[in-house]
Amino acid sequence: MIVTDELARRACAERGLPPPPDVLPIHGLTIPEPDVANLGSIIAAALTHSPAARALLTDLEHEQDIPEAAVRDYYDRNRDRFLTPEALRRGVDPYDEPAPTDIHPYRHVRHGIERELRRAAAHRAFFNWLDVARADVEYAEGYEHPGDPTHQDHEHHH
């Protein structure tokens, strides 16, 4: 987490982002709990405790371009997510030609879909950035992460 924070501070400086405030560590998550499983515990912890990592993620999110076709495709492939409450109560099968009134109209959910896809793209961009940024990091002996496959004893446990 310390390495991720330092790398994020450097990336923020390179991008001309204002320096993040030096604050005491936050107790509790500052990211939505469902995201923890998608992000992984190390990145979730880094985002919780590093204002620089959060600023970088936000900047990466603003850079993501989500084509209209991708938004529409997501809507068409995930009809179950857009059933109306009434349709859910009746047990409507979203894949068995539901009535048009059983599915929220595209124009009502489009913005939310785009936001979700942009956020997912930003997470992928953050993962890619972190992989590249830490490629040349050398840890002092004994401070390697136990799950780091570049470490000769990466299967040991703490």
Rank of each mutant, 00 (worst) to 15 (best):
E6D: 09
F82A: 12
E61M: 10
A99N: 11
A37V: 12
E68W: 05
R119H: 14
V137K: 03
P94M: 07
N38H: 09
P85Q: 07
A46S: 15
E86R: 09
P34Y: 09
R77H: 10
D22C: 02
A140F: 01
I26Q: 14
R9C: 02
A70Y: 00
P149A: 09
L117N: 12
R119A: 08
R134Y: 01
I2N: 10
L56K: 07
A55M: 13
A135L: 09
A44M: 05
P100F: 07
V109I: 11
A87F: 04
R124D: 14
V137M: 04
W129V: 04
P105T: 15
T30W: 01
P105S: 15
A87M: 03
L7P: 02
E33D: 15
C12A: 14
D131G: 04
Y106M: 10
G16H: 03
E33N: 12
A140S: 08
D136M: 08
A13C: 01
D131M: 12
D96N: 11
Y74V: 00
P100G: 03
T84Y: 08
I42R: 15
E63H: 10
L17H: 04
T150P: 00
D153S: 10
A133W: 01
R77W: 00
M1G: 13
L117K: 11
D22N: 08
P149I: 04
L57T: 08
L88P: 00
A87I: 05
P94E: 06
E116V: 02
L47I: 05
H151V: 00
L117C: 06
N38C: 00
H104P: 00
L17W: 05
Y106L: 15
E141Y: 02
I43K: 11
P32F: 13
L88Q: 12
I43W: 09
D93F: 02
H156C: 04
A45M: 13
L88V: 10
L7C: 07
A11G: 01
L88M: 14
H158E: 07
G28F: 05
A122G: 02
H104C: 05
F126I: 05
A125S: 13
R72E: 11
G28N: 06
V3M: 04
D73V: 00
P100E: 11
P146Y: 12
A37I: 12
R54T: 07
R89F: 00
V23K: 14
A125Y: 11
S41V: 09
L39Y: 12
G142C: 05
P67C: 08
Y106W: 05
D102K: 10
E86W: 01
T48H: 03
V132M: 03
E86V: 03
Y139M: 15
R110F: 10
R9W: 03
D76M: 08
Q152C: 02
E155L: 12
P19I: 10
R54S: 06
V92T: 09
P18W: 13
D76A: 13
D136W: 09
T150M: 03
V132H: 09
R72F: 06
L29E: 14
E14M: 04
L29T: 15
A11P: 01
P146V: 05
L39V: 02
A69C: 04
G91P: 07
Y106G: 11
T150D: 10
P98N: 06
P18H: 14
I103S: 02
Q152E: 14
R89E: 14
R79K: 13
Y75W: 15
P85R: 10
